[in-house]
Amino acid sequence: MAVPSAPPLPGAVFSVAEARALGLPPSRLRRKEFAAAGYGLRIVRGRERSLADQLRALAPEAGHTVASHVTAALLWGMWLPLHLDTAPLHLTRPLRYSQPRRRGVVGHNAALQQGDVVRSNGLLVTSPVFTWTDLACVLSCDDLVAVGDSLLRRQDAPPRGGSLPWPDPLCQPAEIQEVVERRTGIRGRATAVAAWGLLRAGVDSAPESHLRLLIHHAALPEPEVNQWITGPDGRVISRPDLQYRRLRIALEYEGEHHLLDPAQWHRDIERDDRLRQLGWVVLRFTKQHLRPENAPATAEKVRTALLARGWQPGWPT
């Protein structure tokens, strides 16, 4: 006689209620293969747990608790500062419900409208735009701009990361404006308003955003973002991170992967050589150029190139 198989587990992290609904007996939940993860929660020992795994038991699609703030930003793959990767879980409920209260969780209430919450991959998550406005109370204006740029990436951008399989762009500029104008009473709204005016579509990475902002803070003209350059025969030559097209100045941010991948490094060199053959100046930058102590020299590097090409302060490019 065949022995009936044990019911499958809900996941690496699950609630006792989920387990009972699947038919797991209380005796099994007391085994050493599980450990308590707070009131009414269990984790499977030895199994890797993603952020989404942790949240499915706390913010399931069927409930009223929503992953929000930094937690939602990580799920969406937004470009957060690195120190926020280990932030506690943030959960939000509509105003008519009590705040989530659980060890390791920061609870919130918010006036959530239908479009402010997304159901995806078994989770309830605040929308990309609502999440962005929530972050205005914990991020500097420059960091908030970088996060906002990550919402407006082009369709063919490199993989964004995160746990939610939504295509780029995650929203449109008009959607951001609508939520900023609606959420008048939130903490950090002045930061959100200032950052909104500095967002640009088509940026590939946070360092590119910070390089553009460094140029902005130095009162230099704003470069174009990720626009194609073609040769005299119409062939596509390059799409620099930033550029001054009329002055033929291209600015490229070189992430560490460019230096560690020999094939990528070779392509970068060939690309820049083709631009130089067309009369372009190519300026290259790394994360060291973006450090606060190096920002003045970085801005001067751009200023020198502009002046060498005939630009004068106050002139458009």
Rank of each mutant, 00 (worst) to 15 (best):
R200V: 13
T184V: 14
C141E: 15
R212C: 11
V145R: 04
D233C: 06
C141D: 05
Q243P: 01
L139Y: 07
Q177H: 12
P207C: 11
P167M: 01
T133Q: 12
N226W: 08
V193F: 01
R154Q: 07
R182F: 00
A190R: 11
D168G: 01
W228Y: 11
V147P: 02
A136M: 12
P167N: 09
Q264K: 03
Q227D: 05
L198Q: 14
P262S: 00
R187G: 06
A250N: 10
G234S: 03
R248V: 07
L152Q: 02
R246N: 14
E254W: 09
A190G: 04
R160V: 01
A190W: 09
V129F: 07
L135R: 00
V236W: 12
D156E: 08
T230W: 08
D168L: 12
L213F: 00
T191A: 07
D168E: 08
L152T: 05
Y244C: 05
W265C: 14
Q177G: 03
G255T: 09
V138C: 10
E256Q: 15
P240T: 10
A250S: 15
Q155Y: 04
C141F: 01
D142C: 10
V129E: 08
A201H: 13
L247G: 05
R212Y: 14
R212D: 11
R248H: 11
P240E: 05
P158G: 00
G231I: 08
P240H: 06
V193A: 02
L220E: 05
L214T: 10
D156M: 02
V147A: 10
Q177C: 04
D156Y: 04
R182V: 04
A174Q: 13
V236I: 04
A250T: 08
P169E: 00
A201P: 09
A201V: 12
T184K: 14
R212H: 14
A218K: 03
G234N: 11
G202L: 02
L170S: 08
R248A: 12
Y244Q: 05
P128G: 10
L251K: 09
